[in-house]
Computed example of a mutant assay.
Amino acid sequence: MPILALIATGGTIAGAAASATDTTGYTAGALGAGALLAAVPQLAGVAEMRAEQLFNLDSKDMVPAHWLALGRRARALLDDPAIDGIVVTHGTDTLEETAAFLDLTLASAKPVVLTAAMRPATALSADGPMNLYSAACVAAHPDSAGRGVLVSFGDAIFPALGVRKCHTHRLDAFAGGCAGAIGRSDPLRYFAPPPLRKRGPVPLPPDLDELPRVDVLHVGAGTPPGLIDLMIADGARGLVLALPGNGSLPAAWDTAVAGAVARGIPVVRASRVGMGPVARKALDERLGTRPAGELPASQARVALMLALAAGDPALLDRLLTDDYIP
């Protein structure tokens, strides 16, 4: 029987409320890893679960230091020959960022699967127990090897890069990128073989305890370009612009963006639209910007932070495409 490590980090899946009908006024991260396992005794038929509580918080309060700690712990577990895979329980709010960080920094054929829940553990028809069971099934399955970090949620399996939370309340709250789900968990089946190419891992200094600051600016009609200078003055070392449409930069922003790039501040054009890639345009050559490709702004930010941390600005171009082979 496979041996899986369960790393619990909190979130709604470990949430508790005073009433079983309360699905919004709960406390995230109220239950520990042991309680999560106890709620799903059927896991005993899937794998031997070795649980640990790395931290227990609402994922809205997750910061890059938590990513680094999680990455170090996941790496140690993956290096353990006794461990066949990892399941990470997480909050939904920032799961896509943690998933991207892990996918871009871990190097192992062993499955790493993130899961979460939209309803707290105390709710009627809580979705967490089934999501945890499905994630364990995905992590224990031999066909999950070599696919990078995965997200198992609501019977769908998504690759980490491109996944995003697309609904504030629905139980099927996640969507993939342009390719959508790559498999399903009930019954477990993948729609295609493992990819031949994969981004990462980014070579980070082993003693790294902080990632460079990168800010995301949401650009709407009439948003002042002076915000760029304010963010840089406040300490941002890179910027991701969540722009209308296909990463469409307003003409009024050209000077500010070109000035930021000239000062050594990388600027990534992402989209505020929920789906679809951002393609390279002539303005990227003219202004020095980079398109986010199929990554949402949240994950393009993670890629930029990692490129800056690695001290290799050219790495960003490779991380924003799907052909980066280390």
Rank of each mutant, 00 (worst) to 15 (best):
Y133Q: 13
Y133K: 13
S134T: 08
A136Y: 03
A136M: 08
C137W: 03
A139F: 03
H141C: 10
P142D: 11
P142M: 10
S144N: 07
S144F: 12
S144K: 04
S144Y: 10
G146M: 02
R147S: 05
G148H: 08
V151M: 07
S152F: 08
D155V: 11
A156M: 15
I157R: 01
F158A: 00
P159G: 03
A160W: 05
A160T: 07
L161E: 05
G162K: 04
R164K: 07
K165T: 11
C166Y: 05
C166P: 01
C166G: 08
T168Y: 10
H169A: 14
R170T: 10
D172Y: 14
A173S: 11
F174M: 09
A175F: 05
G176T: 02
G177R: 09
G177S: 13
G180I: 07
G180N: 09
A181K: 01
I182H: 03
R184Q: 15
R184Y: 08
D186M: 14
D186Q: 15
D186I: 14
L188D: 10
L188P: 10
R189M: 10
R189I: 05
R189F: 08
Y190F: 15
Y190C: 12
F191E: 05
P193Q: 08
P193R: 10
P193W: 03
P194H: 04
P194A: 15
P194R: 10
P195D: 07
L196V: 14
R199P: 01
G200I: 06
P203N: 04
L204E: 00
P205H: 08
P205L: 04
P206S: 00
P206Y: 04
D207M: 15
E210G: 01
P212L: 00
P212R: 00
R213I: 06
V214Q: 01
D215V: 14
G220D: 09
G220Q: 12
T223A: 13
T223D: 09
P224A: 04
P224I: 07
